[in-house]
Structure formats: structure tokens, C-alpha cells
Nucleic acid binder design. Structure first.
Length: 283
DNA sequence: AGCCAGGCTAAGA
DNA sequence: TCTTAGCATGGC
């Protein structure tokens, strides 16, 4: 499918750290896997070309109905957010498969983006179903059942280290319906977090990532080392003893109805402009 | 060589 | 309730 869109930036969208299965090809296009299809994506100016999956699937994954400009207007109008929005202009949150998202972020703990991509790729090659269409090949992300059936050694061979134990235990709990992912969508946010945190390897940060990127919950505001640094340096500069709880109270009251979106713009900005955290501008 | 990475967990104050 | 070491691995 081809769509013409303003305020869309494929590169920022696919490389901001929310998804781990996209590769930039020579020429600037991207190849990735959505569900059971290998997808190709290219942007030329305002024209976005997507192929490999049904239009409805693509529109949902890329959330093409969302008006990013309108969302950005709800962000607090402070210098840091203005810089973050200017830097990542056109970035949008994807709607990923909840299980894939949850499992991927279990593997993400204390790893860098490039390395997470590698681990997830290893996992798909080891346990995922091979895909083939239009000459393009790939692997589906393995279902919870498939991971639950795997051995610890198989997961270990994917280079996920101590996270292997957590992923295996979580897959078994999901596969045996000890935690039912289908019920998460109907829960309010605190209840959903509580439910997801029953799973091994899922703490507040991973739960928030899954809820934001997999379930589209805008209340979710993942606090990783970078966002914590950003909040402390940009919004609590010079203040000592700012507790974690204080940061949570702050972001819940400050970032507005699209807090999850604001978080991702901030994250993408500070990750790519670490100097912004060294000399934090006061105004 | 040593530190850090989109953390979580259990143990101890 | 808050802080900390340990957990694997790789890049710098």
C-alpha cells in the first residue's frame, strides 16, 4: 500500500528503540516482520510505501489513523520537550503484538538496543517459523507455546544470558494461562501492571514497555536509566535526594494524556544527544 | 582494564 | 519502605 502522510518519519519510528525486528537496507528502506509476514517499508518525502502484509494490518501496526501533530500539541511546552519533538519529528508509536513485545523487553534488561536486536533475531531463528513470500524470507516471532516448549539451553544459545531463565518461566506461565494476556486489555492500568508483574523478569519498566508498545496504553511511562537521567537532569536539576516515587508523581501529573508518547520522544532525544544531559539548560 | 547497557530480584538496613 | 549486589555478555 502507498499512503501520503505529513508528520511521518519512518527512520525515527523504527529506530527509536520501541521495536527490535527492523533492519535498514542499503538505500534507506527497511525490512521487518509483522506477525507472519515479511514487510518492506520505504519513505520518500511524504510518500510511505508499505508492502508484504494486508493494508489493514499495516495501518494498525503503524497506527496510521493517529494524528501525530495533534498528539505533539498535547505535550508540555517546555524547552526540553520542544527540543525532543524537533529532533524526533514524525516519530510515532507502533502497535506491536503484546506477547512479542513483552518477551522482547524481558530480553532487553541491561542490554543495548543493537544487542537486543541480535538476541531477538537469534530467538526467532531458533524457535520461530520460517517465512517465505515474494522472494523475501524471515522468521516469525515464536509464540509463547513455542518458547514454553523450548529448552533452557536453546534460549541460552540465543545469547540472552541470565534473561533466559525469566523468558522460559514467563512463556510457561503464559502458555498455561497462569497469566492470561487476553485479559490485560480490559484491566485498568494499575491492575494491568500488577498482573504483568506476576511474570518472572517483568518489573515496572518492562510492564510499562509492554503496555505502551503492545497494548497502546498511554498511561504507561517506562522509566529506564536514560529517562530517569533525563527527568533528574532536565526537570530536577540541582536538587538532591529526588526519590523514585517523586519522579513517578511528577511524570503522571506533567506530561498529559499522551505521556507515553512524550516519554518516547524524550527517550529518543536523550539517547541520541547525551550531551543534553551533561549541561542541562536551565531555561 | 574497567565501566555500562531501555532491569529484576532477593536480601538486609 | 529504600538501597545494593548479583546476574551474563559484549562494546567501548
Amino acid at each position: 500500500m502507498e499512503v501520503t502522510m505529513c508528520n511521518f518519519h519512518l527512520g525515527h519510528t523504527l529506530e527509536c528503540g520501541q521495536a527490535f525486528r527492523w533492519r535498514r537496507l542499503a538505500g534507506g528502506s527497511y525490512e521487518g516482520v509483522i506477525g507472519r509476514t515479511v514487510v518492506h517499508a520505504t519513505q520518500t518525502g511524504d510518500r510511505l510505501m508499505l508492502s508484504g502484509a494486508p493494508a489493514g494490518t499495516l495501518a494498525d501496526y503503524f497506527q496510521l489513523h493517529e494524528d501525530i501533530a495533534a498528539i505533539v500539541r498535547t505535550f508540555p511546552n517546555d524547552p526540553h520537550m520542544r527540543r525532543a519533538v524537533a529532533f524526533g519529528c514524525g516519530m510515532r508509536l507502533l502497535r506491536q503484538d503484546p506477547w512479542e513485545c513483552l518477551a522482547s523487553f524481558i530480553c532487553s534488561a541491561a542490554k543495548q538496543f543493537v544487542q537486543i536486536c541480535q538476541v531477538v533475531d537469534n530467538l526467532c531463528r531458533t524457535l520461530g517459523e520460517p517465512l517465505k513470500a515474494d522472494g523475501r524470507t524471515g522468521f516469525a516471532f515464536p509464540s509463547a507455546a513455542a518458547v514454553a516448549r523450548a529448552t533452557h539451553e536453546q534460549l541460552w544459545s540465543c545469547k540472552m544470558g541470565f534473561r533466559a531463565k525469566n523468558l522460559l518461566a514467563t512463556a510457561r506461565m503464559v502458555d498455561s494461562d497462569k497469566v492470561r494476556l487476553e485479559t490485560i486489555a480490559a484491566m485498568d492500568y494499575p491492575r494491568a501492571v500488577e498482573e504483568l508483574m506476576k511474570l518472572p523478569g517483568v518489573g515496572p519498566k518492562v510492564a510499562d514497555c509492554a503496555l505502551l508498545f503492545g497494548w497502546g496504553r498511554q498511561e504507561a511511562f517506562p522509566i529506564d536509566v536514560w529517562i530517569e537521567r533525563a527527568l533528574r537532569h532536565l526537570y530536577f536539576a540541582g536538587q538532591r535526594r529526588v526519590t523514585r516515587r517523586r519522579l513517578v508523581e511528577f511524570h503522571r501529573s506533567y506530561f498529559g494524556p499522551y505521556a507515553g508518547y512524550a516519554q518516547q520522544y524524550l527517550f529518543h532525544y536523550v539517547r541520541n544527544n547525551p550531551q543534553s544531559l551533561i549541561a542541562a539548560p536551565r531555561k
